[in-house]
Design a protein around this nucleic acid. Structure first.
Lengths: 339, 339
DNA sequence: TTGAAAGCGCTAACAA
DNA sequence: TTGTTAGCGCTTTCAA
């Protein structure tokens, strides 16, 4: 049996398609009597609007794509989990795209115009972003960037205050009496902007406590993965004077670092306290559980989707803004111990 | 500037829209001279087909949805990572839907007809499936189920041979000289069909080795999470005669179980060997690294997408089949130790 | 408030 | 091999 169309409904209700459309969309006001007739017909036929046709007519696809570097990285998976329901509520389907951390790919999607009919906007959570990455893009395509920030002001950024959050993390370690604090995850190059903000917070906390920063304790890593954390920690443990605490730029890094510490027969947090970043679920089950900076992922999702929808619905060009979501420090065993 | 349409191209090339359509889709054969003209026009105008319009005209949306219980469960994330590129290659966009392990939700999506215009088929990876879950669904909507199997033969299943895989896992433990082997993850109720197949393999391995099964060592869990594993392990350790090896129905369960063992001051694998299931990336970084059954996720993805596409393109009803992907046992530290 | 009708951009049956 | 043309199902301008 074929699906009922709007025209069928109109016929049964004895009105014009136009009126049915009005009822379905609640656009214009419709006389109560007419509305009732139409609604009855809709129910009778089991009519459901054809979304595709609607999109063709309106020129909107009702889809947004969310680009993340990796799907199986807990932080991104959790971010997606927060975004999807919010988008759905706003009437958008979410297309998930994985960039594989691949610059080429990321650029390709944002730059080219083949999308047009496929999606109305992009929420983009890059691994690292350089100026050119975004400046070459199609300015007509609504875009909201999560996490990274650049000086360019033509699009929106959503994120937490990384500098403040990082400062709190390190302040927490200092408050615990630690004095030789290391940082794992610095990326002192153009695309490592997010990492650099954490490093800035790290320095700020030292400064406010009147503590010097031992530069040999600031370790760079190509990514924010477990292996990176494990390796960096090995480097730190080989120092003449190893640290008594470590600020890791992700929970994954922290997990790797802890792994190394424990396998050397040292204790966490007694010998070395470790704090991470992201508050991924894994951290709550790690042994020891991982202290962390917990970004408000729901707020990030709400802000990003809200802003994107606004952009999609606005005709004039919208100036880019910086939207801040909240965060909080969660102290767990890896810094304060078990009891 | 407006986007160029197929009609524009036709005009510039001096041919009919029909011909342009043929060139773009490679349907009918087109004279070389005409093709060249058309291609030139396409290039000149920067024409890109409007996917939406095409879908409206063909009655296909070009999208498939993949339903997984949780996005942040590593196994499902990795599965999705395998499916997406395969689907894309086949010309389909993947819509990811999260069921939250919620029965209601799963049923709703499969059952109702509101999709029609939204997607052409579903790949469904349920947490557990009961007979009714699928029998009430719209038979016209192409569906491939990953993992679960039921006796119903109206749709396709893709999965590895769980019984054989589980047998291998337990055989591995027996081969290591273990004699009191526990199983964590049984679900002896209708929706626990996948779990039951693992239990069957567990028993089969015992049978073939002439070993009795101590029923008190078969522990049920509501889910396959870390917590479930951790709790079950506690139960096992409280037994008068605890096991010397454990077969866990997921790597997450294994991770939780190992957590418990270690926190009791026991060693893995010396005191208790642990093997998991799924081969999630996490297992390679766990301390100790986790031995596991590694399903061929790429094969699963290929089989599922291939079958779904076939179903979408076929007019007559297609009989359901059972498609088997490969698997292999990966021995890591949690069973064979560090060196 | 509602009707008539012209598209949205593409496909495909029918003809030539 | 290519052109003509009628939709796909919905929205929306213009009239009434």
């Amino acid at each position: 049996m074929k699906e009922a169309t709007l025209r069928d409904v109109a016929e049964v209700a004895g009105v014009s398609p136009r009126t049915v459309s009005n009822v379905v969309n609640g656009y214009a006001r419709v006389a109560d009597a007419t509305r009732l007739k139409v609604e009855a017909a809709i129910a009778q036929l089991g009519y459901r609007p054809n979304v595709l046709a609607r999109h063709l007519a309106t020129g909107r696809s009702g889809q947004i794509v969310v680009v993340v570097p990796y799907l199986d990285t807990p932080y991104f998976a959790e971010l997606l989990q927060a975004i999807i329901p919010v988008a759905r509520e706003a009437g958008y389907n979410v297309l998930i795209d994985q960039s594989d951390g691949d610059r080429e790919h990321e650029g390709r999607l944002i730059g080219n115009r083949s999308h047009r009919s496929l999606f109305d906007g992009i929420i983009y959570s890059p691994l690292g972003l350089s100026q050119e990455d975004l400046s070459g893009r199609d300015p007509a395509l609504p875009l909201v960037v999560i996490g990274e920030r650049t000086s360019e002001a033509q699009f929106d950024h959503v994120g937490i205050d990384d500098v403040a959050a990082s400062t709190e993390a390190v302040r927490h370690l200092i408050g615990l009496g630690r004095r030789r604090i290391a940082a794992i995850g610095d990326q002192p190059y153009p695309t490592g902007e997010a990492a650099q903000r954490r490093t800035a917070g790290f320095r700020a906390a030292h400064a406010e406590a009147g503590l010097p920063v031992d530069e040999s304790l600031v370790i760079g890593t190509p990514r924010f993965n477990r292996v990176d954390g494990a390796h960096a920690m090995e480097t730190l443990l080989e120092l003449e004077n190893p640290p008594d605490a470590v600020f890791c730029y992700s929970d994954l890094v922290a997990s790797g670092a802890i792994h190394t510490v424990l396998s050397r027969g040292l204790r966490v947090p007694e010998d070395i306290a470790v704090i991470g970043y992201d508050d991924i679920e894994d951290g709550r089950y790690n042994r020891p559980t991982i202290s962390t900076i917990s970004p408000d992922k729901e707020a990030i999702a709400r802000l990003a989707v809200g802003r994107l929808v606004m952009r999609i619905n606005s005709d004039e060009p919208v100036p880019g803004v910086d939207l801040r979501a909240g965060h909080r420090l969660v102290a767990r065993q890896s810094t304060v111990g078990s009891d």
